[in-house]
């Protein structure tokens, strides 16, 4: 059964597309396109979970795939768009690191992740390609958090890392037990809502959501 997943062309394609969507986020200065790319990525992720569910025939993975589709590909992007509309933020992202160096750094991070996974020599259920893609996602998510000025982009960075871990869990063990997986979804959803509240609060107190402003507490 699992051999279908192993060499599956479909899987390789989906994972490659997930990486492409990550670079769409890295390469864009418009908030909406970043959100759209995140939505596409989550959709592809749900696809990965769906393929795994189909080839293993396990009900719980179907549920996880469905939840990913509903929550990460629809609800969370919608929350983002709601926030952007409500606080009437400038639609352009200010960057600490420009687009072209960002893309190069992203590429370097992918290569590093690939070698990292080969060197630790973990045998995964899917392929080591999936695990290295997952580690790339985590590191690019971190990079986005530190290189973009808007608080919204830090939120997106965290979600990108979370997507990366989801892919990691799927590629290592076909995902966590259902109970844990449900708990993680719950936390992610509540986390997004609370970060949204915080962004509203930041906007109201500082009249901007640039994290440049948040530099008074030191020492």
């Amino acid at each position: 059964m699992s051999e279908l997943v192993f060499g599956s062309k479909m899987m390789q394609l989906l994972i490659a597309l997930i990486l492409v969507s990550t670079f769409m986020i890295l390469g864009s200065t418009r908030l909406y396109s970043c959100i759209r790319a995140f939505g596409i990525q989550s959709f592809l992720l749900a696809g990965v979970a769906g393929v795994v569910a189909y080839s293993t025939g396990r009900m719980d993975i179907y549920i996880v795939a469905l939840l990913t589709l509903v929550l990460k590909a629809a609800v969370i992007p919608y929350i983002f768009i709601y926030i952007i509309r409500e606080i009437k933020v400038k639609r352009e992202i200010d960057l600490y690191v420009n687009i072209s160096p960002s893309l190069i750094i992203g590429g370097v991070l992918v290569v590093i992740s690939y070698y990292l996974v080969r060197s630790i020599n973990i045998r995964t259920e899917l392929s080591s390609f999936a695990l290295s893609a997952s580690i790339s996602l985590v590191s690019i998510g971190l990079f986005i958090m530190i290189s973009r000025k808007k608080a919204i982009m830090q939120m997106l960075g965290i979600l990108l890392m979370e997507n990366g871990l989801f892919l990691g869990a799927i590629s290592l063990t076909y995902g966590m037990p259902l109970l844990v997986e449900l708990g993680i979804f719950f936390d992610v959803l509540i986390g997004v809502l609370i970060m949204g509240i915080l962004i509203f609060r930041i906007n109201r107190t500082f009249e901007s959501i640039d994290t440049d402003m948040l530099k008074t507490l030191i020492g």
Binding site: A151, L198, R201, I202, R204, T205, F206, T211, M213, L214, T216, L217
Partner: peptide, 10 residues
Amino acid sequence: SKKSSVEAAW
């Protein structure tokens, strides 16, 4: 709703 508490919370 002080500035410093919002910063700390974020």
